[in-house]
Amino acid sequence: MKEDQVPQDKENLNEGKLAKLYYATDESGHYKKVNSVGWEPETVAMQQAWDVVNNEVEDARLMVIEGKASPVLYYLKKNIMDFSMVASYVGTMSFVVRLHTKPFFFNKLSKKTLEKYAYTFRISVEEFTDIERLKQKHAG
């Protein structure tokens, strides 16, 4: 890649926080360092991965509102985790976490277990158990 080919695509997901370092060649083929604000193919691929995540979060949100799932499922998706990952944070086994995504088991959880979940998802227990706030789209 020649230095004048280093992509500077304005439409990107870097929030102005990151201009990545690329290695590009000068006229004689020797390398130098050039910053890039963004590159479209990467932005497309990254956006696509986030679309998948966001769809799953939205599906989980609807299920929680309809009473088919517990907030565990919503915040699990929201934090891009899976059952086994949440299980190792909470200190249990993944099938237990799977059970806790059912409202029936969720409603029986002790304060201590709720605290562990809330800590894992980086919210307070009140926020975690408050299903009302999930009724607004894009809830925390």
């Binding site: 890649m1 280093v6 990545k20 370092l21 690329y22 290695y23 590009a24 890039s36 590159w39 193919p41 990467e42 497309v44 691929a45 990254m46 696509q48 991965a49």
Partner: peptide
């Protein structure tokens, strides 16, 4: 899409 992301991996210039 995943392949593109592996290929870029923060700052390799897509190569």
């Amino acid at each position: 899409g995943h392949l593109i992301r592996m290929q870029e991996e923060i700052g390799t210039g897509g190569a």
